[in-house]
Design a protein around this nucleic acid. Structure first.
Lengths: 143, 143
DNA sequence: CTGAATCCCATATGATACTG
DNA sequence: CAGTATCATATGGGATTCAG
């Protein structure tokens, strides 16, 4: 199941969006506030699989199996859950074709595309700084 | 306990770092590869609490209690675990003062500081796009 | 055969009580 | 104050089974 692990009362319609999410007077209304809905959003995007999915989808739509191959090692369930969460949050679209064998394609939405830059930066950071991180781990564990 | 949830054989010393993490010939050696150590790194940084901790620490060292206050809603245990993981990976330093009452300060390392930009971008993205995300959720759930 | 739901376990996270 | 210990629960994730 796709659960919403967040301690926030959902807003209602898209129309009233701006009003609902305005900070109460005198409140620091940021991702740091436990009552701010943006935390739900941060939890979704600051996530290992999300980062990889968005990064991989940049080059165009991919079907389920291709994503699974690209994201070496992800299980079917986790990929399904991740994709559904991303679809729900408006980051990707899901296009199912009535064919045999079945074909389902996932594609970045404009919103999702705005996330690609930031997330790919993160992926690159991870790749570029492994040596330093692993060295730090070695040093730390040696004590 | 602080666990390492990763499927990677640790490298050995900092000296041999460059050799060990060179990709086997013909391999796409990226964060997408399940055998690439950078995944361990990505898992740590692409994380809700990590993003918030690094973001908050940018303005200078903070002590445990201040961090806990700033990161509204985090439990002591989780904050401890998160900080220890970040320290192990060389992102922050921990300075303990022999005073009563005790004082412990956490500070970004140069390595950690290189992460601040990318992660704060993510936090800001979350803050700026909540309306769109919540609207998308509304639309999705309405079906 | 592809995509995804189900079952089940490991881990992550959180609340609470306790200590130097 | 800054943790640790313990316990309870939520979530992540893999193996398997199911559906079209």
């Amino acid at each position: 199941m796709v659960t919403n692990n967040l301690n926030v009362t959902n807003g209602r319609t898209a129309m009233s969006t701006q009003k609902i999410y305005a900070p109460p007077p005198g409140t620091n209304w940021s991702v740091l506030s436990s009552t701010c809905p943006s935390r739900t959003s941060l939890a979704r995007i600051a996530n290992k699989w999300t980062a990889m999915v968005i990064t991989v989808l940049e080059d165009g739509p991919l079907r389920f199996g291709d994503l699974r191959t690209a994201l070496e090692g992800i299980s079917g369930k986790v990929l399904t859950d991740t994709l559904r969460d991303l679809e729900r949050d408006g980051m990707i679209t899901r296009q199912s074709y009535a064919e045999i064998p079945p074909r389902v394609e996932y594609e970045l939405t404009p919103l999702g595309r705005t996330l690609h830059g930031p997330l790919s930066v993160l992926c690159r950071w991870a790749e570029e700084h492994i040596p330093e991180v692993l060295a730090a781990r070695d040093a730390y564990d040696e004590r």
